[in-house]
Amino acid sequence: MGIDLDNVGAVSEPAVLQVEDLGVAYGHRQILSGVTFRAAPGELIGVIGPNGAGKSTLFKAICGLVNHTGTVTVNGVHCHDRTERMDLAYIAQRNDSDLAFPITAGELVLTGRRRFSAWYRRPTPDDRDAACHALAEVGLAGVADRGLLELSGGQLQRVYLARALAQEATVVLLDEALSGVDQPTTAEMFELFAQLAGRGTTLLVATHDLAMARRRFGRCLAINGTLRADGTPDAVLAADVLDATFGTAGHAPAH
Protein backbone atom coordinates (compact mmCIF):
# COMPACT_ATOMS: atom_id res chain seq x y z
CA MET A 1 0.00 0.00 0.00
CA GLY A 2 1.04 3.59 -0.61
CA ILE A 3 1.77 6.35 1.81
CA ASP A 4 -1.46 7.08 3.66
CA LEU A 5 -2.39 10.72 3.49
CA ASP A 6 -5.55 12.57 4.45
CA ASN A 7 -8.24 10.98 2.36
CA VAL A 8 -10.16 14.03 1.27
CA GLY A 9 -13.90 13.62 1.08
CA ALA A 10 -13.89 10.12 -0.24
CA VAL A 11 -14.43 8.31 3.04
CA SER A 12 -17.69 9.69 4.32
CA GLU A 13 -19.54 10.07 1.01
CA PRO A 14 -20.83 7.07 -0.92
CA ALA A 15 -18.35 6.01 -3.56
CA VAL A 16 -19.39 6.07 -7.21
CA LEU A 17 -16.17 4.33 -8.20
CA GLN A 18 -14.52 1.78 -5.96
CA VAL A 19 -11.26 0.09 -6.89
CA GLU A 20 -10.05 -2.78 -4.66
CA ASP A 21 -6.61 -4.34 -4.81
CA LEU A 22 -6.38 -3.89 -8.56
CA GLY A 23 -3.45 -5.53 -10.35
CA VAL A 24 -2.48 -5.83 -14.01
CA ALA A 25 0.22 -7.98 -15.58
CA TYR A 26 1.22 -8.10 -19.24
CA GLY A 27 2.72 -11.55 -19.58
CA HIS A 28 5.25 -11.86 -16.76
CA ARG A 29 5.59 -8.11 -16.30
CA GLN A 30 3.57 -6.76 -13.39
CA ILE A 31 2.44 -3.25 -14.40
CA LEU A 32 0.20 -2.45 -11.47
CA SER A 33 -0.52 -4.12 -8.15
CA GLY A 34 -2.51 -3.42 -5.01
CA VAL A 35 -4.26 -0.27 -6.20
CA THR A 36 -7.14 0.58 -3.88
CA PHE A 37 -9.13 3.82 -3.82
CA ARG A 38 -12.65 5.21 -3.84
CA ALA A 39 -14.02 8.21 -5.63
CA ALA A 40 -17.13 10.14 -4.61
CA PRO A 41 -19.64 11.71 -6.99
CA GLY A 42 -18.46 15.06 -8.31
CA GLU A 43 -14.80 14.58 -7.45
CA LEU A 44 -12.13 15.94 -9.78
CA ILE A 45 -9.04 13.81 -9.28
CA GLY A 46 -5.62 14.17 -10.83
CA VAL A 47 -3.73 10.94 -11.51
CA ILE A 48 -0.01 11.67 -11.59
CA GLY A 49 3.03 9.58 -12.30
CA PRO A 50 5.90 9.45 -14.79
CA ASN A 51 5.46 8.07 -18.30
CA GLY A 52 5.16 4.30 -18.15
CA ALA A 53 4.02 4.35 -14.53
CA GLY A 54 0.77 2.59 -15.36
CA LYS A 55 -1.69 5.51 -15.51
CA SER A 56 -3.16 4.42 -18.83
CA THR A 57 -3.17 0.80 -17.69
CA LEU A 58 -5.09 1.81 -14.57
CA PHE A 59 -7.74 3.52 -16.70
CA LYS A 60 -7.98 0.62 -19.10
CA ALA A 61 -8.34 -1.82 -16.21
CA ILE A 62 -11.07 0.30 -14.65
CA CYS A 63 -12.91 0.18 -17.98
CA GLY A 64 -12.36 -3.56 -18.26
CA LEU A 65 -10.28 -3.21 -21.42
CA VAL A 66 -7.39 -5.24 -20.03
CA ASN A 67 -7.41 -8.32 -17.82
CA HIS A 68 -6.84 -7.54 -14.17
CA THR A 69 -7.05 -8.94 -10.67
CA GLY A 70 -9.01 -7.24 -7.91
CA THR A 71 -12.41 -5.61 -8.29
CA VAL A 72 -13.86 -2.45 -9.76
CA THR A 73 -17.38 -1.33 -8.90
CA VAL A 74 -19.35 1.56 -10.31
CA ASN A 75 -22.34 2.75 -8.27
CA GLY A 76 -21.87 -0.28 -6.07
CA VAL A 77 -22.40 -2.71 -8.92
CA HIS A 78 -19.61 -5.06 -9.90
CA CYS A 79 -18.16 -3.73 -13.07
CA HIS A 80 -17.34 -5.19 -16.43
CA ASP A 81 -20.58 -6.62 -17.45
CA ARG A 82 -21.59 -4.72 -20.50
CA THR A 83 -24.26 -2.42 -19.15
CA GLU A 84 -22.35 -1.11 -16.17
CA ARG A 85 -19.24 -0.39 -18.15
CA MET A 86 -21.16 2.15 -20.17
CA ASP A 87 -21.40 4.40 -17.12
CA LEU A 88 -17.70 4.94 -17.64
CA ALA A 89 -16.35 7.14 -20.40
CA TYR A 90 -12.72 6.63 -21.33
CA ILE A 91 -11.08 9.36 -23.37
CA ALA A 92 -7.86 7.96 -24.75
CA GLN A 93 -4.71 9.89 -25.56
CA ARG A 94 -5.52 11.98 -28.58
CA ASN A 95 -2.96 10.46 -30.91
CA ASP A 96 -4.81 7.15 -30.56
CA SER A 97 -7.64 8.10 -32.90
CA ASP A 98 -7.61 8.08 -36.70
CA LEU A 99 -8.31 11.76 -37.37
CA ALA A 100 -8.64 11.18 -41.11
CA PHE A 101 -11.63 8.89 -40.58
CA PRO A 102 -14.68 10.22 -42.43
CA ILE A 103 -16.77 11.17 -39.41
CA THR A 104 -17.93 14.63 -38.34
CA ALA A 105 -17.73 16.01 -34.81
CA GLY A 106 -21.51 15.77 -34.52
CA GLU A 107 -21.56 12.14 -35.65
CA LEU A 108 -18.79 11.31 -33.18
CA VAL A 109 -20.79 12.79 -30.30
CA LEU A 110 -23.88 10.93 -31.50
CA THR A 111 -22.07 7.59 -31.02
CA GLY A 112 -22.28 8.28 -27.28
CA ARG A 113 -26.01 7.56 -27.52
CA ARG A 114 -25.50 4.00 -28.78
CA ARG A 115 -25.73 2.54 -25.26
CA PHE A 116 -29.38 3.58 -25.06
CA SER A 117 -30.25 1.83 -28.30
CA ALA A 118 -30.03 -1.54 -30.04
CA TRP A 119 -27.85 -2.66 -32.92
CA TYR A 120 -30.59 -2.50 -35.52
CA ARG A 121 -31.87 0.95 -34.49
CA ARG A 122 -30.90 4.20 -36.12
CA PRO A 123 -30.31 7.24 -33.88
CA THR A 124 -33.62 8.89 -32.99
CA PRO A 125 -34.37 12.64 -33.13
CA ASP A 126 -34.02 12.61 -29.33
CA ASP A 127 -30.52 11.16 -29.68
CA ARG A 128 -29.64 13.90 -32.15
CA ASP A 129 -30.98 16.56 -29.78
CA ALA A 130 -28.92 15.10 -26.95
CA ALA A 131 -25.79 15.12 -29.12
CA CYS A 132 -26.39 18.75 -30.20
CA HIS A 133 -26.99 19.72 -26.60
CA ALA A 134 -23.77 18.00 -25.49
CA LEU A 135 -21.76 19.81 -28.18
CA ALA A 136 -23.31 23.13 -27.13
CA GLU A 137 -22.39 22.42 -23.51
CA VAL A 138 -18.71 22.12 -24.37
CA GLY A 139 -19.01 25.34 -26.38
CA LEU A 140 -18.75 23.76 -29.80
CA ALA A 141 -22.25 24.09 -31.24
CA GLY A 142 -20.77 25.48 -34.44
CA VAL A 143 -18.44 22.62 -35.36
CA ALA A 144 -20.93 19.73 -35.65
CA ASP A 145 -20.37 19.38 -39.38
CA ARG A 146 -16.58 19.55 -39.31
CA GLY A 147 -14.27 16.62 -39.89
CA LEU A 148 -11.81 15.77 -37.13
CA LEU A 149 -8.80 17.11 -39.03
CA GLU A 150 -10.50 20.49 -39.13
CA LEU A 151 -10.57 20.72 -35.33
CA SER A 152 -7.83 22.03 -33.07
CA GLY A 153 -6.37 19.76 -30.40
CA GLY A 154 -8.41 21.43 -27.68
CA GLN A 155 -11.60 21.27 -29.72
CA LEU A 156 -11.06 17.57 -30.33
CA GLN A 157 -10.72 16.91 -26.60
CA ARG A 158 -13.93 18.83 -26.00
CA VAL A 159 -15.71 16.83 -28.70
CA TYR A 160 -14.74 13.63 -26.86
CA LEU A 161 -15.95 15.20 -23.63
CA ALA A 162 -19.24 15.95 -25.39
CA ARG A 163 -19.47 12.28 -26.34
CA ALA A 164 -19.06 11.39 -22.65
CA LEU A 165 -21.87 13.84 -21.87
CA ALA A 166 -24.12 12.34 -24.54
CA GLN A 167 -23.30 8.96 -23.04
CA GLU A 168 -24.48 10.26 -19.63
CA ALA A 169 -21.42 8.72 -18.02
CA THR A 170 -21.09 9.04 -14.26
CA VAL A 171 -17.32 8.51 -14.30
CA VAL A 172 -15.09 10.10 -16.96
CA LEU A 173 -11.46 8.99 -17.34
CA LEU A 174 -9.23 11.34 -19.33
CA ASP A 175 -5.83 10.00 -20.32
CA GLU A 176 -3.29 12.80 -20.86
CA ALA A 177 -6.12 14.85 -22.28
CA LEU A 178 -4.24 18.08 -21.76
CA SER A 179 -0.77 17.42 -23.09
CA GLY A 180 0.04 19.59 -26.05
CA VAL A 181 -2.98 21.81 -25.41
CA ASP A 182 -2.31 25.53 -24.93
CA GLN A 183 -2.95 27.53 -21.74
CA PRO A 184 -6.32 29.15 -22.57
CA THR A 185 -7.68 25.79 -23.75
CA THR A 186 -6.47 24.10 -20.58
CA ALA A 187 -8.29 26.77 -18.56
CA GLU A 188 -11.47 26.19 -20.59
CA MET A 189 -11.19 22.45 -20.10
CA PHE A 190 -10.91 22.85 -16.34
CA GLU A 191 -13.95 25.14 -16.33
CA LEU A 192 -15.80 22.34 -18.10
CA PHE A 193 -14.48 19.74 -15.65
CA ALA A 194 -15.71 21.91 -12.77
CA GLN A 195 -19.16 22.22 -14.37
CA LEU A 196 -19.37 18.46 -14.84
CA ALA A 197 -18.16 17.78 -11.31
CA GLY A 198 -20.77 20.25 -10.05
CA ARG A 199 -23.42 18.04 -11.61
CA GLY A 200 -22.10 14.97 -9.87
CA THR A 201 -19.85 13.52 -12.57
CA THR A 202 -16.62 12.06 -11.24
CA LEU A 203 -13.54 12.88 -13.30
CA LEU A 204 -10.12 11.25 -13.22
CA VAL A 205 -7.51 13.09 -15.25
CA ALA A 206 -4.11 11.50 -15.86
CA THR A 207 -1.23 13.91 -16.27
CA HIS A 208 2.51 14.07 -15.85
CA ASP A 209 2.38 17.85 -15.48
CA LEU A 210 2.97 18.32 -11.76
CA ALA A 211 2.64 22.10 -11.79
CA MET A 212 -0.80 21.74 -13.30
CA ALA A 213 -1.72 19.00 -10.86
CA ARG A 214 -0.81 21.24 -7.93
CA ARG A 215 -2.92 24.15 -9.19
CA ARG A 216 -5.94 22.39 -10.62
CA PHE A 217 -6.97 19.36 -8.60
CA GLY A 218 -8.55 18.96 -5.18
CA ARG A 219 -7.17 15.45 -4.85
CA CYS A 220 -4.34 13.59 -6.48
CA LEU A 221 -3.43 9.93 -6.84
CA ALA A 222 0.28 9.25 -7.34
CA ILE A 223 0.80 6.11 -9.41
CA ASN A 224 3.98 4.22 -10.15
CA GLY A 225 3.50 0.46 -10.28
CA THR A 226 1.10 0.84 -7.39
CA LEU A 227 -0.77 3.65 -5.62
CA ARG A 228 2.07 5.59 -3.99
CA ALA A 229 -0.04 8.30 -2.42
CA ASP A 230 -3.60 9.58 -2.27
CA GLY A 231 -4.56 12.98 -0.89
CA THR A 232 -4.41 16.74 -1.41
CA PRO A 233 -1.99 17.96 -4.09
CA ASP A 234 0.22 19.60 -1.47
CA ALA A 235 0.56 16.34 0.44
CA VAL A 236 0.98 14.13 -2.64
CA LEU A 237 3.43 16.51 -4.26
CA ALA A 238 5.60 16.75 -1.14
CA ALA A 239 9.24 15.94 -1.81
CA ASP A 240 9.37 12.53 -0.15
CA VAL A 241 6.27 11.30 -1.95
CA LEU A 242 7.53 12.56 -5.28
CA ASP A 243 10.74 10.73 -4.63
CA ALA A 244 8.81 7.49 -4.20
CA THR A 245 6.72 8.16 -7.29
CA PHE A 246 9.20 9.59 -9.76
CA GLY A 247 12.44 8.24 -8.42
CA THR A 248 14.03 11.69 -8.25
CA ALA A 249 12.70 14.24 -5.77
CA GLY A 250 10.85 17.16 -7.29
CA HIS A 251 11.90 16.43 -10.84
CA ALA A 252 9.01 16.36 -13.23
CA PRO A 253 9.98 14.62 -16.44
CA ALA A 254 10.32 16.93 -19.40
CA HIS A 255 7.58 16.63 -21.93
Binding site: T83, M86, L88, Y90, S97, D98, L108, T111, R114
Partner: peptide, 10 residues
Protein backbone atom coordinates in the same frame (compact mmCIF):
# COMPACT_ATOMS: atom_id res chain seq x y z
CA UNK B 1 -13.56 4.42 -35.86
CA UNK B 2 -13.20 3.60 -32.15
CA UNK B 3 -13.52 -0.08 -31.35
CA UNK B 4 -12.85 0.47 -27.66
CA UNK B 5 -15.72 2.89 -27.24
CA UNK B 6 -17.88 0.78 -29.52
CA UNK B 7 -17.36 -2.30 -27.41
CA UNK B 8 -18.06 -0.39 -24.22
CA UNK B 9 -21.28 0.90 -25.75
CA UNK B 10 -22.52 -2.58 -26.54
Amino acid sequence: FDHVHAEQSG
